[in-house]
């Protein structure tokens, strides 16, 4: 019954939709490939003899790029109409980072600032 009110699409509408979906799929595949590549690079870096001071910031940087790709391409943040969701995710991330930093600082490091 849910289909009761659906109208038939015109040919150009259908074509436009197809076009959009192909484009979307290409985006998904490209970002997926990129993420696999970044993960692969991170593994190689960790496995090779590169010093840790060099590896850690680069792997963290890769992780950051992956998070962005996840949010924008896989979770549709790049699309229109996601403003509120975007705002909430940003706020949530701010809170989460604040909690984690605060807890690590207070619980494990103690109070180093005198």
């Amino acid at each position: 019954m849910a289909e009761m009110n659906q109208e038939v699409m015109t040919k150009s509408q259908l074509e436009y939709l197809r076009n959009q979906r192909t484009k979307e799929m290409r985006h998904q595949l490209v970002s997926f490939g990129l993420m696999i590549f970044l993960t692969f690079m991170a593994f190689i870096l960790a496995a090779s003899d590169v010093p840790a001071q060099f590896t850690i910031p680069i792997v963290l940087g890769f992780a950051f790029i992956q998070v962005i790709l996840q949010f924008f391409y896989f979770m549709h943040m790049k699309d229109n109409g996601h403003d509120f969701a975007k705002l909430l995710i940003m706020t949530g991330m701010y809170f989460a980072i604040a909690f984690v930093v605060c807890m690590i600082y207070i619980v494990w490091i103690g109070a180093p600032i005198e």
């Binding site: 605060c102 600082y105 207070i106 103690g110 109070a111 600032i113």
Partner: peptide
């Protein structure tokens, strides 16, 4: 953390 002032978080916190 204002519920935990007496836990001993230190003066800065």
């Amino acid at each position: 953390a204002h519920h935990m002032f007496t836990v001993g978080l230190g003066p800065t916190a």
